[in-house]
Design a binder for these strands. Sequence first.
DNA 1: CTCTTATCTTTCCATTGGATAGTTAAGGCA
DNA 2: TGCCTTAACTATCCAATGGAAAGATAAGAG
Lengths: 185, 185
Amino acid sequence: MAAMTADRPYHHGDLRRAALTAAVDAIKEGGSPAALSLRDVARRAGVSHAAFKHHFGGKPGLLTAVATEGYALLADALTAAGDDRIEAGVAYVRFAAAHPAHFDVMFQPGLYNADDPDLRAAEQRAGAALTAVLSSSADENDELAAWSIVHGFASLWVSGALRTAPGADAGEAARPVISLLELPR
Amino acid sequence: MAAMTADRPYHHGDLRRAALTAAVDAIKEGGSPAALSLRDVARRAGVSHAAFKHHFGGKPGLLTAVATEGYALLADALTAAGDDRIEAGVAYVRFAAAHPAHFDVMFQPGLYNADDPDLRAAEQRAGAALTAVLSSSADENDELAAWSIVHGFASLWVSGALRTAPGADAGEAARPVISLLELPR
DNA sequence: CTCTTATCTTTCCATTGGATAGTTAAGGCA
DNA sequence: TGCCTTAACTATCCAATGGAAAGATAAGAG
């Protein structure tokens, strides 16, 4: 039974990529990764919902790919920010604000396949980039404090808990805040 | 058609309370509020899934109640902690670690009915308690920094990003970290 | 003792994620 | 060129979900 109403090709060509962006769009519109529907993503990509099984295995697999991409983007952003701790922190916040869907998924390990090899690799790359900037820290508490303040600001920003002027730049808003941790003590 | 296999009474007596605790249990076991199933909660409470309509309206309504209870608990914990900023911060983290399900829901406004009156009231009570402790702050950035570092630590702890010794006390782990913000500058 | 109303159940529905089996195309190899 | 293996995708079925509607039961007011 060959239906094929539309004249699009049988093979998408770059379904994986299309699915990822469609998923991120859907998460943004839905407001939460929880509301994500596989079938909705499939419709956006113009594909049967079962097509994802081959590429991602299932819904958790799709979200695993989103998280993986997120960690990769974060690692890139951190490396690009250089050695300055403040700038790295600003980059962290900026990443979260620019990719809220990725950020949301990343820190909800219950949603995806947390022991996926690719995911782990990207995760460790981001972790290494973070540790590299913080290597000047005196002790472990110093590192934890830096990570906490930056992650906290990012989380609050993304969740909408900070009622800021619309269109405000998250990075610039964060700079004076996270700088408080860096003053000479 | 009166089936009623079990001999439990037709009226539960305290369904609202039972539903809340069942929902929290289910979220903890499921790992994420996203995985929460209304019908599962109903089974735990020994009730038809349609019974919730009257009490909560629907799934978002149930999660709204969870978030409301969370904000109330947080407000209580903060007020009980007294005037000390460090102790308030420790209490914040301790709350998150003790009630991870509530905490998870609270900061995902997309999951619930964010403009519910009761929710707003509890939210504002917690906000007031937080602001009260931070009132000694020099400026707004100081307040934001304090909130960020505490919320960041709590988020990372709850999401499992901090690989700590099992059974470790979150509050005590947080104390030296958040104290770094309080050193004389 | 009846009426009213809050609480709960049954039943039905569209939608979801997943499983299975079949269809199409693309690339290696004769 | 023609075959054949395999990647990529569709069609279809299924159990489970959240919600809606309508009815059953109980509790309390008068």
